[in-house]
């Protein structure tokens, strides 16, 4: 078995995570400090925040920012990546810019957007999108470069429309690259969204973390973090994995007559 890529077995999660919880509980019990609350206290906070509706309101605000920013970044990044991958001229023109953007710290974009456009929702979203687009574009560009020229020729001979090419010839080939961009994108975006919220919004998980930080409410910080990790995992399990399984089914069709 390949150690590098193989998923660990499910039981490892059922051992390692509860184990970690035990260590946490014991350390917290031993220290008895408000700066490290135990699991039960965090759970209490979670229940309280959730029954007051606060948790859902802020989670919802953050999640909708993540979804909006993610969709925009994927759409624009894919379009840019396709153009750069298919045209040498455009690639020569924009590659330097891409390198610059890739190395620009997320924090700089966020600050600049807020300074230039004010502490408004559009500036917050734009900051996240601008941060993410270069990653998507670079990944999709790789995919666009590796498109099978033989299928391109086929599509030319049979006069496929641009839409047919995009949907039926390119997308299935780009799918693995889009999945990579999606995976990396989601992880990156929700972290940036928290910073954006912390710096300039008045709702969302990032804003709540900011408030909790000001009063050193570690219990609230952990409660909100755990809630958000759970949401991101749920997206992974409920949307991304089924999508990936479904769309790669053709890759290993059981051979019937070969």
């Amino acid at each position: 078995m390949n150690v590098g890529t193989a998923r660990p077995p499910v039981w490892s999660y059922w051992i390692v995570l509860p184990g970690l919880m035990m260590v946490w509980a014991m350390t917290a019990g031993y220290l008895g400090s408000p700066l490290l609350p135990g699991p039960m206290e965090v759970l209490d906070t979670l229940v309280r925040e959730s029954s007051s509706g606060q948790l859902w309101m802020h989670l919802g605000a953050t999640l909708s920012r993540v979804i909006l920013a993610f969709s925009l970044a994927m759409l624009l990044g894919t379009a840019i990546g396709l153009v750069l991958g298919r045209s040498r001229t455009f690639n020569a023109l924009f590659d330097p810019l891409l390198v610059l953007m890739l190395n620009l710290p997320a924090l700089v974009t966020i600050i600049l957007m807020y300074v230039w456009f004010g502490l408004v929702e559009a500036a917050a979203l734009m900051a996240v999108v601008v941060n993410k687009i270069p990653n998507v574009a670079v990944t999709v560009r790789e995919g666009a470069r590796s498109l099978d020229y033989r299928l391109e020729q086929m599509a030319s001979v049979y006069r496929f429309s641009l839409w047919q090419r995009l949907r039926d010839v390119w997308m299935p080939q780009l799918f693995p690259y889009l999945m990579v961009a999606t995976r990396g994108g989601l992880a990156l975006i929700w972290k940036i969204v928290l910073v954006v919220e912390l710096l300039g919004r008045s709702n969302g998980v990032g804003f709540q973390l900011h408030m909790a930080f000001q009063v050193f409410d570690v219990s609230a910080i952990l409660a909100y973090s755990l809630a958000f990790i759970a949401v991101v995992q749920l997206i992974e399990l409920a949307i991304l994995q089924p999508l990936e399984n479904r769309s790669s089914r053709w890759r290993q069709p059981e051979s019937v007559h070969a």
Binding site: W250, P253, H257
Partner: peptide, 11 residues
């Protein structure tokens, strides 16, 4: 309903 790669070369 078959996918192309489920067929033999001749098919």
């Amino acid at each position: 309903a078959y996918l192309p790669d489920q067929l033999s070369l001749g098919m």
